[in-house]
Design a protein around this nucleic acid. Structure first.
Lengths: 245, 245
DNA sequence: CGCCACGTTGAACCGCATCAAACCAGGTGG
DNA sequence: CCACCTGGTTTGATGCGGTTCAACGTGGCG
C-alpha cells in the first residue's frame, strides 16, 4: 500500500481535522488496508443483509447509502465523499441494513475486520477515532432527519450543497466556492426526499436568486451567506474542531 | 450502585440481546455509573453545544433527541426508551449537536467520560459493545430518514409504533401487543415530520382499520401483521441477533 | 442517424398543512 | 361542589407545497 495514495491521504486528513494523529497511528491505519478496487458508477458496493468480513473506505468518487421501498421509491440516507468509511459500522453490525452504491465510478480500499478488531485491542486512541467517524456519520444523518422533516424543498437542497461543500473541503476537493458533484438531479431528489421535477424547479430558483449553480456535475456557490441563510445551515454538527478524543 | 437496579438491568439486557456479556464486563459497566438523578418531564437533559464530561444512561421514562428550527418548528430525531444511552456519542464528539429532553419524568444515570475512556483502554470487547450501541442509534436514525423521506403519514406512524414495540420488548417493557407510551400526539408529529392535526387523523384511521389504538398514553396493537404491512416494517435494522462483536 | 438518459417546462391534482373552533379531562381555587 | 383554567384531542373548511402526468428539449454515444 503506497502511503501517499491521495485517497488514503483524504481519509487521514478527515481524522487530522478532529484530533492529533500520531505517525504510528497513520502507519497502522494505512497498513490495515488489504486491497484496493475500482467499481463502475451505479454498481452496488455492499448489499444489504450480506455478512461482512471487511469494511470499505472510499478513496475516489462518490457513493451513497440507500434503501428502497416496495413501490420502487429510493431514499438516499447519506452521500459519501472521498475519504469516508462507507461501511465502518459493518464491522460491529456484521451485516448492513441498507445498500451502498456507487454514484460515480469509484475507487475503494478494503479493510479486513480482523485488522479493525486488532486496532480496538491494541490502539485504543485510533479505535476511538474510528468510532468517532461513525458518530460523525450519525450526526450527518440526524441533520438529514431535520432537513427532510421540517425544512422546505429549497432549504433542503441548499443545506445539502452547503454540507457537501465543507465535507469536500476537508478532503481537499473544494476550492473558492466550487466543487465537482457529478451526480444527477434524481440523486439529489432521492437524498432530499423530493421528486426530480421539483428539485429541478428549486435549483432554478436558487440559481435565479444568485445563490448557487448546479450544472454539468459542478456546484458553484455564488453567495455563501445567502445560501447559508436559506438553508439555516449551522456547521456545528460536522464537529470540525481538533480536540483530544 | 445496586447492581440490580431495573434501569441498569434494562441497559444490560439491551447488550445481552446482541452478544455475550461476561460477568466481569457487567461489573465494569455497572461500576462506571457515578450517580443517578431524576428529571421532570419536558426539562432538558443535555443542551446542544455544552462541553460534556459525562454521558447519560436512561433508566426510567422516555426521552428524545431533538433540534429546533428558527421558526420554532421542532424535529425529534430519536425517541429513547429505558436502557438507552442517550448521549454516549457525546463521549467522543465532546459536545452534542442537538438537545436531549425528557418526554416524561425520567430517571437517569451519569457515567463520567473518564470511565468510558478507561473501558476503551482496558476492556476492548465491552468498548466494542458500547460502540455497537451508538451504531444501533444510527441505524434507527437511518430508518427514520427513509420513513420521513418516502413513507406516507399513516405508514410513518405505524412504523414508529412497530419500532418502539420491539425496542420496549428488549427492555422488558412490552407484553402481548401493548406497551405504555405516555407521550402526546404532538410528540409523535415532531418525530414523524407531521402536524399534530394530521397525526390525529391518521391515528383515527389506523384505529378504524383495526390495526392499533393509541390512547391514554398506551399503545395496543390489535393486528401486528396488518400494522407491519402498512408500515413496510422490517426489523432487520434493529440487529436483534446475538453475535460475537 | 437514432437512441437514451437526463434535464426542463406546463397543467392538473392531492396529501398534508393551516386556521379556527369546539371538546374533554384533570387540576386548582373559591 | 362548582367555576375556571390549561394542555391535549378532535373535527371541519380552506389552501398550498410538492407530486403526478405528460411532453419536449438536449447532449453524448454507438
Amino acid at each position: 500500500m503506497p502511503g501517499d495514495d491521495p485517497g488514503i491521504e483524504r481519509a487521514l486528513a478527515k481524522l487530522r481535522v478532529r484530533d492529533v494523529v500520531t505517525p504510528e497511528e497513520e502507519r497502522v491505519f494505512t497498513a490495515s488496508i488489504a486491497e484496493t478496487r475500482v467499481i463502475a458508477a451505479h454498481r452496488q458496493i455492499v448489499r444489504s443483509g450480506t455478512t461482512l468480513s471487511e469494511s470499505t473506505l472510499l478513496l475516489d468518487g462518490l457513493a451513497c447509502r440507500y434503501k428502497d421501498l416496495a413501490n420502487g421509491e429510493r431514499q438516499i440516507q447519506e452521500v459519501h465523499v472521498p475519504g469516508d468509511y462507507v461501511d465502518l459500522h459493518g464491522f460491529l453490525l456484521k451485516t448492513l441494513d441498507h445498500n451502498v452504491g456507487a454514484l460515480t465510478d469509484v475507487r475503494i480500499a478494503l479493510v479486513p475486520h480482523d485488522a479493525l478488531r486488532e486496532i480496538t485491542e491494541n490502539h485504543p486512541h485510533l479505535a476511538r477515532l474510528l468510532w468517532f467517524s461513525t458518530l460523525l456519520d450519525a450526526a450527518i444523518q440526524r441533520e438529514r432527519i431535520l432537513s427532510i422533516g421540517r425544512r422546505n424543498a429549497a432549504s433542503r437542497i441548499a443545506h445539502l450543497i452547503c454540507e457537501l461543500y465543507l465535507r469536500m473541503q476537508v478532503s481537499g476537493l473544494a476550492e473558492e466556492g466550487r466543487y465537482a458533484l457529478p451526480i444527477t438531479q434524481t440523486d439529489i431528489a432521492d437524498t432530499c426526499g423530493l421528486t426530480p421535477v421539483h428539485v429541478n424547479r428549486m435549483l432554478r430558483r436558487l440559481r435565479g436568486e444568485g445563490l448557487m449553480t448546479f450544472r454539468g456535475g459542478e456546484v458553484v456557490i455564488h453567495d455563501w451567506d445567502g445560501l447559508v441563510r436559506v438553508a439555516e445551515f449551522d456547521p456545528t454538527y460536522l464537529h470540525l474542531d481538533r480536540r483530544p478524543r
